[in-house]
Design a protein around this nucleic acid. Structure first.
Length: 538
RNA sequence: GGGCCUGUAGCUUAGCCAGGUAGAGCGUCCGGCUUUUAACCGGAUGGCCAAGGGUUCGAAUCCCUUCAGGCCCGCCA
């Protein structure tokens, strides 16, 4: 059974109505790891609906959280905003400097980072039923009951946190972080609690009052989380493994949740996505692949597939290089496997049946439109093949022509093929494109070529030069000359082409050579051949 | 210290929750096509399922122990 279906089945034993939640702090650029959080929830929601459960997906934007520090991508002038809530400070401009102009137009720091992410979510088929801005939720009193309840049970909550997490809280710890006279929630000491008013004194010695029902501050994280569960009735939430560790915020959260009067949600811990060869992605260190960036390389269903094919507890090494091309091709192959069908069901082993069910679910949950059934593309053009053609053919029309000649498409490209080519071109021109797939047209004779061509080829190469010099510069003409000159000298085509691959690409294989040569300038080809002849003659 | 995850063919892995002959993709090799390919089609190769013990008629799967790797526990998902 697919992991999402297992979770949905577990949820069905708890009730018919489910609120699946995700929460992210918009402290910096969003990355593909955040996408895992959201997609995990989205896929579980779809699985619930498939089981006829009533399920909705709410996305908590933790914009009431304070700026923790001046991140590497921020200008030092952000120093003044440390401790201030993310919904309340200006966004950085291109240089990381606070952009007060945009802030005046209503774009906060949090919104600045959130908006492109929300766009990416739409593109990837995530249907969020409700986006909850935590800052607004506090302001409008959504947290009022839970906040008062927490403040009235300060001892019980302190006991839970100290016992479960094993850390000691300060004597004056209080489950409310008020906003001080400067707008910061750091460095404030609580001096009294008179429901619903918290009295405090800040680091400058100024004192004040904070009404917990009006969002004049916020609950600290370990209380804030269960408070969300309570007021919004969350029944399921996936979270990163940092929260899932023993004594972590889920452990304390589930007990605090009961103190606040509700059962905690069904948990799912998911592993992190790291960038292959670089390490874990982190908004604060700048090690990121933005979700938009990833979506600029491959169609969005490939990113969904990355998440559906891996169980949440499975660590993912994300690799924008050859592994991504292979992933995309695997997705397409599985689609056509699905179309072929499982064969005689009764003759399948149980193992095969399990695999089939899982394949179906993986592909189903990869669809952008939840209502659509997975369908194999009518063409069988792999990403691998497309990556070659895109490099050889600078004009789209020539790519389609090539695919048509090789019988892979009827005449005009159909489906998402034009879009895939567009993405592929962007990928190739990005630093993410795998070097192993990159074609390198040589301008001099490489070492590999020197070792692998010999004098027997000289006569052949000379003949080629003569032939190519006055042929019509079309791939079929070029190809005919290459083949005919080889035949007339009893050189096997395999050897002839290998020799030429060595000269042109400095490797012994490649895509259709004539197509490459056609894209090159005739004189450049002749010059390169002459260099090879000179090399051999010396 | 506490805890989580992972360990299956050269590589990536499915199968483990509900025990019943170890599956796939990539790679490699061979063959087909031969006006060539990294395309396409067909075939082959390859695993004492980390180690040890236990339960069982039967264990990759359940239990215990060990080893190895990764990670989390200062709100970075």
């Amino acid at each position: 059974m697919h992991w999402a279906d297992s979770i949905a089945t577990a949820l069905s034993h708890r009730g018919d109505k489910h609120v699946i939640a995700s929460g992210i702090t918009p402290s910096g650029e969003f990355h593909i790891g955040h996408l895992r959080e959201i997609l995990t929830s989205d896929i579980i929601k779809r699985a619930c609906i498939a089981l006829d459960l009533d399920a909705e997906f709410v996305f908590f934007v933790d914009d009431a959280d304070p700026l923790r520090k001046v991140y590497s991508f921020l200008d030092n002038s952000y120093e003044q905003y440390i401790g201030h809530q993310l919904a309340n400070i200006p966004p950085p401009d291109a240089n990381g400097v606070p952009d007060n102009e945009r802030f005046a137009q209503g774009i906060s720091y949090a919104r600045h980072f959130l908006e492109p992410f929300i766009q990416a979510l739409e593109a990837i088929g995530v249907q969020i039923d409700e986006v909850i801005y935590n800052y607004d939720a506090y302001q409008s009193g959504k947290f009022a009951e839970a906040s008062r309840s927490a403040c009235n049970q300060v001892d019980a909550i302190r006991e839970v946190i100290e016992r479960v997490s094993g850390r000691e809280l300060d004597d004056d710890w209080f489950p409310w972080n008020p906003i001080d006279s400067k707008g910061s929630i750091d460095g404030i000491r609580i001096t009294g609690w008179d429901d619903p008013i918290v009295n405090w004194i800040d680091s400058d010695g100024n004192s004040g009052q904070s009404d917990v029902t009006k969002g004049e501050g916020k609950l600290p994280w370990r209380v804030d989380w269960p408070a969300k569960w309570v007021w919004r009735g969350v029944t399921m939430e996936p979270f990163g493994k940092d929260h899932g560790a023993a004594g972590g915020s889920y452990d304390t959260g589930k007990e605090i949740c009961r103190l606040l009067g509700n059962e905690p949600p069904y948990p799912t811990t998911y592993e992190w996505i790291s960038l292959k060869g670089v390490g874990a992605m982190s908004s604060s260190t700048g090690v990121i692949i933005g979700p938009l960036e990833a979506l600029n390389l491959v169609p969005p269903e490939i990113i969904r597939y990355l998440i559906t094919r891996n169980k949440p507890n499975r660590h993912i090494d994300f690799d924008t290089g050859s592994a991504l091309i292979e992933l995309a091709d695997e997705y397409q192959k599985k689609l056509s496997d699905l179309e072929k069908g499982p064969g005689e069901w009764d003759e399948l082993s149980r193992r095969q049946q399990v695999a089939w069910e899982k394949l179906k679910a993986q592909l189903l949950y990869s669809q952008i439109d939840p209502a659509s059934t997975p369908q194999a593309a009518s063409e069988r053009v792999t990403f691998r093949h497309l990556s070659m053609l895109a490099q050889i053919r600078s004009e789209d029309a020539n790519v389609w022509g090539s695919l048509h000649r090789s019988g892979l498409i009827e005449s005009e490209p159909t489906g998402d093929l034009p879009r895939r080519l567009e993405l592929m071109r962007a990928w190739i021109s990005s630093p993410h494109f795998p070097e192993a797939f990159r074609l390198r047209i040589q301008t001099e004779i490489g070492d590999g070529a020197k070792e692998n061509i010999d004098e027997r080829d000289v006569d052949y190469l000379k003949a080629l030069c003569r032939g190519l010099a006055d042929c019509e510069w079309k791939s079929h003409e070029i190809n005919a000359i290459i083949c005919n000159e080889a035949k007339s000298r009893d050189i096997s085509l395999r050897d002839a082409f290998q020799t030429l691959y060595w000269i042109v690409l400095n490797q012994d294989f490649g895509p259709k050579l004539a197509n490459i040569l056609e894209e090159m300038d005739m004189q450049a080809v002749l010059d390169l051949l002459q260099l090879a002849i000179d090399e051999l003659s010396s």
